[in-house]
Nucleic acid binder design. Structure first.
Length: 790
DNA sequence: CAGTGAGCGAGCTTCCGCTTGACTT
């Protein structure tokens, strides 16, 4: 039996480490945190020093039992959770829950999974750092207090089931504020003048493009300028060559991987993390949730070998990058391939692409700078001294890291793409082919993408690598923000061209401010943000996290008691919660849209218990008449809906026609537009509008769904029409009334008879009633009591 | 899965940060 038990956080890590340590060591995993505050209540004892009340969640009991069994047999327990605040807390919770003794317990840390690092760690054990544990408790308790006091306030003042928190509320604020910047943005226009010149003594194709060194403010000024320079000669007065260089980007962290995978591969943040996890579990890459750009010595050596082998010595430049991210805890290496010799890996296209990206980025980070020659050509205009044409070019002298990888940018810049310039010398006379002035409109700020939001959050030190993807998902699930296309505005741009001494004028219609799939706030998101900004400016402050992080650091250094810090924060905060509760009115976001010409009643748009809605008539009509209500459609918002659109919403539900002597009704419900026929709901596809859909199309949709439903059916029983065997998303199952019973894999679904189906149902219900022999959790006890069992 | 929205009241919703399977229809 192994004398040593090592406990790490991740099972994949456990496997790797076990292979380094030999037979005296057994390595097990805690699967992250093993205890947490009960999520059904505050679980912080406000009156007694904010003592947290931890509980082991049901799904963690099995892990604990296994660890307990292993710990009993081991002489020394090595707590090897990550070297950061959360990891220290995990070590402490393990120590407590497993009932370990100090003399038999060692705390070890490493921030890379290499044999050398593990051995070094084993040789240099310490004990649990209780200050660091306290810093984590402070973090945990603060987040719980903020989240569980603000959320209920929102339920009362805005809408049920909303949420607020230190991280998510600030993420939404970023998106809301960007939206207002865009709304308030006034574009200015200007004219960009570009000259196309013919080189002397060369053939037709030898041309040079150059841009005027100033932008012209108006069409009038541009016309005046062009008229003024008619008949000018153009002379090269300076050719300047300067060496330049470009350096590779640091190896990937979680955040930069998410950004690059979005830009280069079009992956969502969640998809990137899922695929990275698969690569990690296959042992192809190092851990994917990291804020460090550090590479182990082993990785540096591997990269160097590979670069020299593939490209030669001059391409190798071993370097270590330093993390500049605020609050980085650097418990792991950067994300890199586990072996640099593996140029390609992965089981499917997505894995292969992501792996390739990681491999290239890691390689490039250890390669030489690219050397450039930057050329600037200045061209004088004979009829004016105030303006010059400038042409900039760039030649790669030595490609260095560019051989494998170059980082993408979020937004195209307005500058001309630098390219190779034709050879010209000072004094050369250029022949004008055309001078073109194009009207440009300054673009509004860009809305956030998932990845650019992660980047911003990381800059502000808000959120952690393990939470970036969940944050994005939470704020969308709460319907604070949504991914949305924006059509933009059509703008007419003037184009003035000077050619052969004549000025020609044209116009071109272009889209301005159009964006696709960008994070856009909803009505609820805007109202909640405004509500929180008005009452909890402190928590909504972009610096709030940075400020509390500083205090967490003081706790970790032993300079501050954690409950003292929480106390200082909590009481003023709580007072504000109580005051807001008493004084603030319910947020309705009400907007009067106009008067219904038919009834003469007011039409409002506002927030209701089920989201945005329109209302016809007064809530408190003196005549006692009740208003009518209708939900807004997915693409509508309180801020932009018109009276006409609102009135059309009241036309639902409407009768579309008849089918087989039964009526078809079209309407919109909580899950979007639908048809109701024969008391069955049929969701309408995106491009169908319940207001305009006709009988023919409706019948088509009904028949289509009926056909699909029928195709799913494997077997029916005439004597029991409520029992059906059908194919589902997760394989065949038995449907009995509204209950779904999975069919075991070894059983052929078509061979089942009614008797067997009912037996399977019985077995399934029994196994559901007693999931395992494990002890009941408090939550389960409550449930079984209320059902009156036992 | 659904047609709410008044008003009452019970019971519910909720945080952030570690980590993967068990589970779903």
């Amino acid at each position: 039996m192994a004398k040593n038990l090592v406990i790490v956080e991740s099972p994949a890590k456990a496997k790797t480490i076990e292979s380094f340590l030999g037979k005296d060591y057994m390595v097990k995993s805690s699967f992250g945190h093993i205890r947490d505050l009960d999520k059904n209540k505050l679980s912080v004892d406000i009156q007694h020093d904010f003592t947290p009340q931890y509980e082991i969640p049901r799904e963690k009991k099995k892990v604990i039992e296994e660890l307990l069994a292993a710990a009993r047999k081991a002489e020394i327990i090595w707590l090897a959770s990550d070297e950061d605040r959360e990891g220290e807390a995990i070590a402490w919770h393990l120590y407590e829950v497993l009932g370990l003794e100090e003399s038999h317990t060692r705390r070890i840390v490493f921030h890379e999974i290499t044999k050398k690092a593990i051995q070094q760690a084993i040789e240099n054990p310490r004990f649990i750092d209780f200050n660091l544990v306290d810093a984590q408790q402070a973090r945990r308790v603060l987040d719980r207090l903020v989240g569980y006091e603000l959320s209920p306030l929102l339920w009362k003042k805005v809408k049920p089931a909303l949420s607020a928190g230190r991280v998510q509320s600030v993420a939404v604020r970023l998106i809301v504020e960007r939206e207002f910047e865009i709304r308030n943005f006034n574009p200015t226009d200007y004219f960009r003048v570009t000259g196309l010149f013919q080189l002397p003594n060369k053939d037709e194709k030898a041309q040079l493009t150059a841009e005027l060194d100033q932008r012209l403010p108006t069409k009038e000024a541009t016309l005046e300028f062009l008229n003024h320079i008619i008949g000018s000669t153009y002379t090269v007065i300076n050719v300047e060559k300067k060496p330049g260089k470009r350096s590779p980007a640091a190896p990937f962290t979680t955040s930069t991987l998410q950004q690059e995978a979005a830009r280069k591969l079009g992956f969502s943040v969640a998809r990137t993390m899922m695929i990275a996890q698969q690569l990690y579990e296959s042992g192809l890459i190092t851990y994917m949730r990291t804020d460090s750009v550090n590479l182990s010595d082993l990785a540096l050596a591997m990269a160097q070998d590979e670069i020299i082998k593939l490209y030669g010595k001059e391409y190798s430049n071993t370097r270590q990058y330093t993390t500049r991210t605020k609050g980085a805890q650097e418990a792991h290496e950067a994300i890199r391939p586990t072996s640099m010799e593996r140029h390609q890996a992965g089981e499917n296209e997505a894995q292969r692409k992501l792996y390739e990206l990681i491999w290239k980025r890691t390689m490039a980070s250890q390669m030489s700078d690219a050397l450039l020659e930057k050329t600037t050509i200045t061209i004088a205009i004979s009829k004016t001294n105030h303006y010059h044409f400038i042409s900039r070019g760039e030649v790669v002298i030595f490609d260095g890291f560019l051989k494998v990888y170059s980082e993408s940018v979020d937004e195209e810049t307005d500058e001309m793409n630098a390219e190779i310039l034709p050879p010209v010398s000072t004094g050369d006379e250029l022949k004008e082919k055309s001078i073109t002035a194009v009207q440009k409109f300054t673009p509004p700020p860009y809305r956030y993408t998932e990845a650019s939001l992660v980047k911003k959050l990381e800059e502000l030190g808000i959120g952690r690598p393990s939470t970036y993807a969940p944050i994005i998902s939470t704020i969308q699930k709460r319907e604070y923000v949504e991914k949305k296309d924006h059509a933009g505005i059509e703008k007419t741009a003037h184009i003035l061209t000077l050619k052969n001494g004549k000025i020609k004028e044209e116009t071109k219609v272009e889209k301005w401010g159009a964006e696709k799939g960008k994070l856009t706030p909803t009505d609820i998101g805007i109202l909640v943000t405004q509500f929180l900004m008005n009452n909890f400016e402190n928590i909504m402050d972009y610096q709030f996290t940075a400020r509390v992080e500083k205090e967490f650091d003081e706790i970790a250094e032993g300079k501050l008691k954690w409950n003292k810090m929480i106390q200082r924060f909590y009481w003023p905060f709580h007072e504000t919660v109580v005051k807001t509760q008493q004084t603030q009115e319910k947020v309705k976001g009400e907007r009067l849209l106009g008067v219904d010409p038919v009834s003469g009643k007011n039409v409002y748009a506002k927030i209701g218990r089920f989201g945005a809605m329109v209302q016809l008539g007064e809530s408190k009509d003196p005549t006692g008449q009740k208003p009518r209500f209708a939900s807004l459609r997915k693409n509508q918002s309180i801020e932009t809906i018109t009276l006409e659109e609102a009135l059309s919403l009241f036309k639902l539900p409407r009768s579309v026609g008849m089918y087989m002597e039964k009526e078809i009704i079209a309407s919109t419900g909580r899950f979007g537009p639908y048809l109701l026929y024969n008391s069955v709901f049929y969701s309408l596809p995106k491009d169908e509008d319940p207001l305009v859909i006709d009988q023919e199309k409706a019948i088509q949709i009904i028949e289509e769904k009926n056909r699909k439903e029928a195709a799913k059916i494997i077997k029916t029983f005439p004597e029991r029409p409520d029992v059906v065997i059908q194919n589902g998303r997760y394989g065949p199952y038995i449907k009995i009334g509204s209950e779904n019973i999975p069919i075991p894999k070894k059983v052929a679904p078509e061979s089942l008879d009614l008797q067997q189906c009912l037996e399977l149902q019985k077995k399934y219900l029994e196994s559901k009633a007693n999931p395992s022999e494990m002890k009941e959790t408090p939550a389960q006890k409550k449930k079984s009591k209320s059902k009156g069992k036992k």
